[in-house]
Design a protein around this nucleic acid. Structure first.
Lengths: 239, 239
DNA sequence: TAGTGGTCTAGACCACGCA
DNA sequence: GCGTGGTCTAGACCACTAG
């Protein structure tokens, strides 16, 4: 059986995208108007419109009334990295995944907690340290703070089945997040990772809000040069 | 003057998005069929379709024929980080930007070069080391390899006006890229950054292809804990 | 002011995938 | 089967903006 042809709007999109990526239509080139393209493809304008709208959403072209659609200059270094779920990451690499809760406490947010969650005034918080292991070897150290104001059910949860991160997804939606990636030197608090002090580690911090309300702050420490965040991608999202 | 109302498909999208993010429609909830929504909004199905198609593209809902549209479990840990142009990054922080070319050479790709560019067989390459400075202080060390097979005009370029990265954008489009972020210890090769050996540094590596053809490999070293990659975002791209 | 994209309609047929 | 989304049409009017 022949594989059925992809939809027309997708073929139109692919054709134009190929011309841009090949350099045939360099940045600044004006793309034929929707009506012209519709005529040349022998289809309705709406079909062409869908293709061009997607290209614009992907940042390959810029569209303006009257001026028409022009090929955009690539935004250069602006690119995208996906940060995966730890369990999925470990299992995708072919290792057995396991985690341990190292420490757990409930308290009224202190000064440092307020800074981590960017709280205006103290609320009850749940602090959890856990260790993620790949094939029983330390993979990542997690230090998490959860606002019990946003997630009161956290107080009764023991995280026996799901790690704090995985559990939290099912509890509360998030409307905004902030990531921060940096390099730090291993200190005494990272002894669980079993590395000499001073070893470079990758630190990934994430803050999450739901409707302007702080939900959680997590700091993930990946040991040394052994780990890297990797992403492979094309300039168009939907490609 | 009243601000003119946003288009109908956008209002429909916003309404549904709000219900999902507020938790009113938790993951797994089935969204009314397009025909039902069209009836309740008193509009054509195409209009509802556009709204739902965008929500699906943003990963908020999942659509299947016959089964209908259901609210997706947020992928949480999967998130997005933008890596900005260095010059823009420095200037956005309010510092004067400057760069220096430290070293430059042309050669037939050696074993290490082939690995960096993922070349099958050696091609002529251009190797450039440069230092990016913010307010005359070292900000980032760049070590770049450019395939002269993909960008022959690089041989004659002196990079006096544009840094190698900025210059390269204008020369050749890219169809795919790979990023790798890790933590490394400062070594002798990073002396230009003026840091003690062993200091943790953030290393960002990027490989770029054009139509399966290697274009460049760059390694950016940011000194110590002073620098971090930060991104703030909402779950929906178009929000 | 005229050309262009932005939006919307009221239909249509088809493909998929649960029942 | 048959309900659902996927796609497409052949129009239409409007909003913006470059010339």
């Amino acid at each position: 059986m022949e594989p059925s042809a992809p939809p027309l709007h997708r073929r139109i999109r692919a054709t134009i995208e190929a011309r841009i990526l090949s350099g045939e239509w360099p940045p600044g080139t004006r793309i034929p108007a929707e009506t012209e393209l519709a005529a040349s493809y022998g289809c309705a304008r709406m079909t062409v419109n869908k293709a061009l709208t997607e290209l614009a959403a992907d940042g390959l072209i810029e569209r303006r009334r009257k001026a028409g659609s022009v090929v955009k200059r690539p935004v250069l270094q602006s690119a995208v990295l996906e940060i995966h779920d730890i369990r999925a990451e470990v299992e995708a690499a072919g290792f057995a995944y396991r985690y341990e809760i190292l420490k757990r406490s409930t308290r009224q947010a202190n000064r440092g907690d307020c800074a981590r969650l960017q709280l205006d005034k103290p609320v009850p918080v749940l602090a959890i340290s856990s260790l993620h292991l790949a094939a029983d070897r330390p993979f990542c150290l997690e230090d998490r703070l959860i606002s019990l104001h946003a997630v009161p059910q956290g107080e009764a949860e023991n995280f026996a089945v799901l790690s704090p991160g995985a559990w939290l997804i099912g509890q509360v939606p998030w409307s905004q997040a902030e990531h921060r990636i940096s390099a730090v030197a291993a200190d005494a608090g990272m002894a669980a990772l079993g590395m000499p002090m001073g070893t470079p580690c990758l630190a990934v911090e994430r803050r999450t809000w739901n409707a302007d309300h702080p939900v959680t702050h997590v700091r993930l420490i990946y040991p040394g040069e052994a780990h890297a965040l990797v992403a492979r991608f094309a300039p168009s999202k939907a490609g």
